[in-house]
Simulated scan of single mutants.
Amino acid sequence: MLELDNIHSYYGKSHVLEGVSLHVDAGELVTLLGRNGAGKTTTLKSIMGLVDTRRGHITFEGHDVTGQQPFHIARRGVALVPEHRGIFSILTVEENLKISVRRGSRWQLEDIYQWFPRLKERRRNSGNALSGGEQQMLAIARALLNDPRILLLDEPTEGLAPVIIDEIVKILAAIRKEGLPVLLVEQNLRVCEAVADRHYILEQGQVVYHGSADDFQADPSIRDRYLALSA
């Protein structure tokens, strides 16, 4: 469904991704792991056409989208929920949701309120009155209303309380059960191990590990080698 083949991406003259290849198949939830600065967010931005990708190919549902404008990629059904969430703070929760509804989407407002009861409770509150966890839920819900074919999530649990993280995990599990493929950038290994089918690890702009969820969990040396904090 989504395939990155040997992509090289840059910020100006800075060569950030150095030959990244990965794929996400239909119905999969795949995580992209790595230390800070490894290139995880840049990978998501490359997929969305927000970063200068000078070599390699990005293919989505058989179409080469390398170098296309972000709005063209979004129209194909690629939805990015960025780390900063990007909600409209002066609009209410319901206004944020309503402007995102796409006609014919498999998820409508009533479905979102069933999945996210907190948002229904806070539907008349403005975006800037929400907690960080509620803002994250709103960002994910807004992406779903746009009827994506694949969801890219950048650090959805960062800075959230454990009880809210548990809610996000349940939402991710429900999205996976619905068959919507997800590429998840996440630092919380507990979250990743709870929901993922496969894992990739990036280090200095390169894929240094790829394995199934079972293989990753069975080999703690992978975590020690690539994800533990350096001394």
Results as ranks from 00 to 15, higher is better:
residue 106 R to E: 00
residue 88 F to A: 15
residue 198 R to V: 07
residue 79 A to L: 07
residue 129 A to S: 14
residue 218 A to D: 13
residue 120 K to G: 04
residue 211 G to K: 05
residue 143 A to K: 07
residue 180 L to E: 02
residue 188 N to M: 00
residue 125 N to C: 13
residue 222 I to T: 09
residue 209 Y to K: 01
residue 225 R to A: 10
residue 167 E to N: 03
residue 16 V to N: 01
residue 28 E to G: 06
residue 228 A to T: 05
residue 90 I to D: 15
residue 41 T to G: 00
residue 85 R to N: 08
residue 69 Q to Y: 12
residue 55 R to I: 11
residue 139 A to C: 05
residue 5 D to A: 12
residue 74 A to V: 14
residue 223 R to L: 03
residue 43 T to Y: 02
residue 139 A to F: 02
residue 153 L to C: 06
residue 180 L to C: 05
residue 148 P to H: 06
residue 19 G to N: 10
residue 175 I to G: 03
residue 12 G to C: 12
residue 18 E to M: 15
residue 10 Y to R: 10
residue 3 E to R: 15
residue 136 Q to N: 12
residue 162 P to N: 08
residue 94 E to M: 14
residue 195 V to E: 03
residue 162 P to W: 06
residue 230 S to Q: 14
residue 56 G to P: 07
residue 4 L to P: 05
residue 227 L to K: 02
residue 82 P to K: 13
residue 136 Q to R: 07
residue 206 Q to E: 15
residue 141 A to F: 10
residue 52 D to E: 15
residue 118 R to F: 02
residue 124 R to A: 13
residue 63 H to G: 00
residue 194 A to N: 01
residue 134 E to I: 07
residue 43 T to A: 12
residue 219 D to Y: 02
residue 44 L to Q: 11
residue 166 D to N: 12
residue 155 E to F: 10
residue 6 N to D: 15
residue 142 R to V: 10
residue 98 K to H: 08
residue 61 E to R: 09
residue 75 R to S: 10
residue 9 S to L: 11
residue 88 F to Y: 15
residue 183 L to R: 05
residue 79 A to H: 06
residue 136 Q to I: 09
residue 220 P to K: 05
residue 49 G to L: 07
residue 160 L to V: 11
residue 140 I to C: 06
residue 30 V to R: 08
residue 117 P to I: 02
residue 122 R to H: 14
residue 183 L to D: 02
residue 199 H to L: 14
residue 11 Y to G: 13
residue 150 I to W: 05
residue 202 L to C: 11
residue 136 Q to L: 09
residue 161 A to D: 09
residue 154 D to C: 07
residue 92 T to L: 12
residue 120 K to I: 01
residue 177 K to G: 06
residue 156 P to V: 00
residue 217 Q to P: 00
residue 94 E to V: 15
residue 15 H to Y: 10
residue 54 R to F: 10
residue 133 G to F: 13
residue 58 I to G: 06
residue 202 L to P: 04
residue 47 I to M: 13
residue 145 L to E: 03
residue 76 R to G: 01
residue 207 V to I: 15
residue 115 W to E: 07
residue 178 E to M: 03
residue 147 D to I: 07
residue 68 Q to I: 04
residue 78 V to A: 02
residue 1 M to L: 06
residue 116 F to C: 09
residue 62 G to I: 05
residue 76 R to V: 02
residue 13 K to Q: 13
residue 11 Y to P: 10
residue 29 L to N: 01
residue 2 L to N: 12
residue 217 Q to F: 02
residue 145 L to P: 01
residue 58 I to S: 11
residue 87 I to F: 12
residue 226 Y to I: 08
